[in-house]
């Protein structure tokens, strides 16, 4: 128990940005807009959060800046994909490079610390929250430590990320907006025939993706760490994309897939140089590559089948 809990705890922390980014991709892709720019949006958000919270010492202002920056990038992607009917993959690639270049460039120009933002003072971070009764229950076997270590003691964004999953499921499957959103990703012509604007629906989906990526970036810069560093997303946007595919574009499985990938990450940190009973020393790189390998295998249909939204990636033209 003592050995497992810290790993699970760090898995939770590592899976939070994946959950938020994967939910971002969920809304965008279910509406028919492919989004490989999750990485870039998260990165620009992390930079905005780190820079603003570092200067103002306010976590909330940092979060707001992150969301604004990320939504701005999302709107560029939306404009290129929806209004200009450009190639969504190319647009996503552009977003990723823009974010990677701009964050390093502006960071260096403004703060001259090799792309870092100034260290965020205490008030500029989302502090860990002690849930009521955590200390009192610690003595209770099994439940106590799990509650005190695993469930309690995270920052606000962790809890928000977990709550975002049922919220997303409710929006997608229980509201009129969600129904239309899913419809526009499968058959935009039918939605158009019903007199609903395809473009406006998709713009809203893309903006929601921007908001989620904003939270994910803020989590990286001002909750998990105390400041932005160069390329701090380090491929998390692509792992989130992998998790989204792994979850077959559904909210609850997104939570599971992200936790699985977060767990793999936590284990790979834990296993550095450790020897396992039967297999001997496992190369850390093998565990790091596992999420990508699993996604390739899944996409190839060797375990289950991942079918993307039918209209994904296709620009909608009103009259054919």
């Amino acid at each position: 128990m003592e050995a497992v809990l810290p790993v699970l705890d760090s898995a939770v922390r590592l899976s939070v940005p994946l959950i938020l980014a994967a939910l971002a991709g969920l809304f965008s892709e279910r509406s028919g807009i492919f989004d490989i720019g999750l990485e870039g949006k998260m990165l620009i958000a992390a930079f905005a959060a780190g820079a603003v919270a570092g200067v103002t010492a306010s976590a909330w202002l940092g979060l707001a800046a992150a969301v604004v920056a990320s939504v701005a990038f999302a709107l560029v992607h939306g404009y290129a994909s929806i209004t200009q009917r450009g190639n969504q993959i190319v647009s996503g690639v552009a977003i990723n490079f823009l974010a990677s270049g701009l964050t390093a460039f502006l960071g260096q120009a403004w703060f001259s610390q090799g792309g870092r933002t100034p260290p965020v003072p205490a008030g500029g971070r989302f502090a860990e929250i002690e849930l009521p009764g955590a200390e009192a229950l610690r003595g209770v076997p099994l439940v106590g430590p799990v509650y005190a270590e695993l469930i309690s003691g995270h920052n606000l964004l962790v809890y928000l990320a977990v709550l975002a999953v049922p919220l997303s499921a409710w929006i997608l499957y229980r509201t009129r907006f969600g129904l239309r959103l899913r419809a526009v990703g499968e058959n935009p012509a039918a939605v158009d025939t019903a007199g609903i604007s395809v473009a406006w629906l998709r713009y809203r989906a893309v903006m929601i993706a921007g908001i989620f990526c904003g939270f994910a970036g803020a989590y990286l810069a001002i909750a998990q760490s105390a400041g932005f560093i160069r390329d701090m997303t380090a491929g998390k946007g692509f792992i989130a994309l992998a998790a989204l595919i792994f979850a077959k574009w559904r909210p609850w499985p997104v939570l599971g897939a992200c936790f699985l990938f977060g767990l793999l990450d936590a284990i790979s940190i834990r296993l550095q140089g450790a020897r396992l009973p039967i297999v001997g020393e496992v190369p850390v790189q093998a565990i790091q590559a596992l999420p990508y390998l699993l996604t390739v295998v899944l996409l190839a249909g060797f375990i289950g089948r991942a079918v993307p939204p039918r209209a994904g990636g296709v620009p909608y033209v009103k009259e054919h």
């Binding site: 290129a80 200009q84 647009s91 552009a94 823009l98 260096q108 792309g115």
Partner: peptide, 26 residues
């Protein structure tokens, strides 16, 4: 010009992909 770091190239790269690729019909 130390304020203009080499990361500017990545920005230009992104802009070229955006304008010559995704916004080619703009």
């Amino acid at each position: 010009m130390p304020a203009v770091s080499r990361d500017m190239i990545v920005v230009i790269q992104g802009l070229v992909i955006l304008f010559a690729g995704a916004l080619e019909h703009l």
